[in-house]
Structures are given as structure tokens and as C-alpha cells.
């Protein structure tokens, strides 16, 4: 054993639209007493860029640039979201409002954190590789600190887990085992999760 200090002093919470409550709640529940919190929000710059691009595509038509307007709205929205996160946290915390590619900025910002708390961002109606979205996957792969990955809603029932590969091999040729190997749709998801397409 090394004598490296493993005390968790600095907890970063990635605040993202729709899932931030779960991250804040998990941080409150699991962070040790005395830990300091930082709430962090990244506005994807491509959103305002897309609007600006569409405006340039109008080829010379005047009027206000919606890209600029979106930039202002996004800044206000990020501030509002961090305010709400701070209120839910119920204590003073550091705040980081960043613009850029969210997953990269989160990795960069949390480099000196002792713990990063974040929520899953994938399509959780089908549990499998895609139920962890691209951004969350990137942070899990590249974060320089331990990551606490939480469910935005209640955790899935253990029965949604597919059988292990050995069972699938043994059951090859039998329809029942094959059917069970497919990822099952989750039942009883809170809103937004299991909506039929």
C-alpha cells in the first residue's frame, strides 16, 4: 500500500439538462462530509454554430443573427441550471460554466477533482452498449479521476440483464434461450425512458 491521500475533498458534479437532479442527489448522498462541491455545465457550442450556419446560408439577408441570440439564451440557461443545482445541493459550491464539446470539457475541467459525479445520457429503453451515450462513454474512458455514474431514474431491475455468454452457447438452437439473449425492453421506466417509437 502507498500512503497516497485518498480522501475525497473535491467533488465535481456534471450538470446536464434533464439528468442533473440525479447527479446532485447522488453527490449529496455519497460524498463524505466536509467535501467541497463544484457544479459544472458545458454548453455545446455546436448548437449556436448550427443556427449561425443556417443564417449564413440565407446569403446576405439582414436581420439579427440567431446564432448570437442562441449564444445569449444558452448562457442564461446555463446560469439558471447551475442556480437550480446549487439550490438543490443546499450549500455553497464552486461553479463552472463552459462552452465547447461537453465530454472533452468535462474531462479537462475535472482533472484535479477527487470524484466526478455524472448521470447516464444514453437511450436507456434498450439496455446494451448504446444505453451509455457517446459523451458519457468518452468521459468514462478518459476521466483522470474516479467517476460515479448514476441512473437518471430508478436503477433497472436485475432481471433486465441478459444471460451470460456460456448459457447462450449452451442454448444455441433453442429458441427460448435465443430470445432471452436479446436485450429486453425495460418495463416501468419513468417518463421519457420507455416511450414506444
Amino acid at each position: 500500500m502507498t500512503d497516497r491521500d485518498t480522501t475525497i475533498r473535491s467533488v465535481f458534479i456534471w450538470v446536464a439538462e434533464g439528468t442533473w437532479r440525479a447527479s446532485v442527489d447522488a453527490a449529496l448522498r455519497l460524498a463524505p462530509a466536509g467535501a467541497g462541491f463544484t457544479v459544472l455545465h458545458v454548453t455545446p457550442s455546436e448548437v449556436a454554430d448550427a443556427a449561425h450556419g443556417a443564417y449564413l446560408g440565407l446569403f446576405g439577408r439582414g436581420g439579427p443573427d440567431p446564432g448570437q441570440r442562441l449564444g445569449e439564451l444558452a448562457a442564461a440557461s446555463a446560469t439558471g441550471l447551475l442556480d437550480a443545482a446549487e439550490r438543490r445541493l443546499g450549500r455553497r459550491c464552486a461553479r463552472l460554466e463552459i462552452q465547447g464539446i461537453p465530454e472533452r470539457e468535462v474531462v479537462r475541467a475535472s482533472v484535479h477533482a477527487d470524484l466526478l459525479v455524472m448521470a447516464r445520457d444514453g437511450d436507456r429503453s434498450r439496455l446494451g452498449p448504446k444505453s451509455l451515450g457517446k459523451a458519457a462513454r468518452f468521459v468514462v474512458d478518459h476521466a483522470a479521476c474516479p467517476v460515479l455514474l448514476v441512473w437518471p431514474e430508478s436503477a433497472p431491475h436485475v432481471g433486465t440483464m441478459p444471460p451470460p455468454p456460456r448459457d447462450r452457447d449452451a442454448g444455441r438452437g433453442r429458441g427460448e434461450a435465443r430470445a432471452a439473449a436479446r436485450p429486453r425492453r425495460r418495463r416501468g421506466l419513468p417518463r421519457g425512458g420507455g416511450e414506444p417509437s
Binding site: 439538462e17 434533464g18 444514453g122 457517446k134 421519457g192
Partner: peptide, 9 residues
């Protein structure tokens, strides 16, 4: 799909 999966508040 990922962005559309997270329900709002």
C-alpha cells in the same frame, strides 16, 4: 436518440 432519451424536468 441519446439526447432524446433524457426526459425534462
Amino acid at each position: 436518440a441519446a439526447d432524446l432519451a433524457s426526459s425534462g424536468g
